[in-house]
Amino acid sequence: MTAFFQPILVLLWKDILLEVRSKDLVISVGVFGLLVAVIFNFALNVSPQQITSLAPGILWVAYSFAGVLAMNRTFMREREQGGLEGLLLTPVSRDAIFLGKAMASFSFMLLVEVVLLPVFAVLLGFSILSWTLAVTIVLATLGFAVVGTLFSAIAVQTRSRELMLPVLFFPVILPVIIGAVQLTTVAVGGEISVGLNRWLPLLGIFDALFLVICPWVFSVVTEE
C-alpha cells in the first residue's frame, strides 16, 4: 500500500515546493478569479435583493474559470524541459502519476478557492459559515481536479492546447457546476427546486465514477 502512495506524495511534494518557490500559479489564478467576479458584478448589476440568487452563480463561474487556468498551468509546468517525459521514464505506476498530479491540482485549486471565498463573501455580501458550502467546495473541486487532470494531459499534447482544455472540460464538468451552484444557493439561504438530498449524492457519484475511470484511461493516454 505504501508502495502505491509514496510516489503520489513525492509528486505532490514536488509540486508544492515548486509553487512555494515561484508562487505564480496561486497568485495569478487567484487574481483572475477575483476579476471574473468583479466583471460579473458589473455585467449583471447585482442588487442586494438578488444576492442569494446570483452570488452562487458568480462564485462558481469564477471558480471554474480559475480552475481551468490552474490546471493548464500545472501541466504546462511539466511540459517545460520535459518534466512529464521524465516522470513517464520512472517505473512509477501511471495511476500513481495521475493521482499525484490530480492531488496537486486539487490542493492548489482548493487553496485559491479558500482564499477567494471571504473576499467574495464581502464583495457579494453573503455568509460563508456553512458546512454545506464547505462540503460542496471540496466535492466539486475534487471533480474538477480529476476530470481536469485527465483532459489537461490530453490537451497539452495537442495543437492549440489552451483552447482544447476548456472545450473538453466544460461540457463534461457541467453537472458538477450545476450541483455546486444549487448547493451554494441553499448554503446562502436561497430556495431551490430539488433539495440537498439529491445534489450531494450527485457530486459524490460524479467524483467516485471519474476517480475510477480517469486513472485507467490516463495510463492509455500517456502510452505514446
Partner: peptide, 24 residues
C-alpha cells in the same frame, strides 16, 4: 486514443448531465 478517451468519458457523463438538468 484521445478520441476513445473522450468517447468513453463523454458517454459516461450523459446520464449525470441528464439528471442534473432535470433537477435544475
Amino acid at each position: 486514443i484521445y478520441a476513445a478517451v473522450v468517447g468513453i468519458v463523454g458517454f459516461v457523463d450523459v446520464p449525470i448531465v441528464y439528471y442534473s438538468v432535470i433537477w435544475w
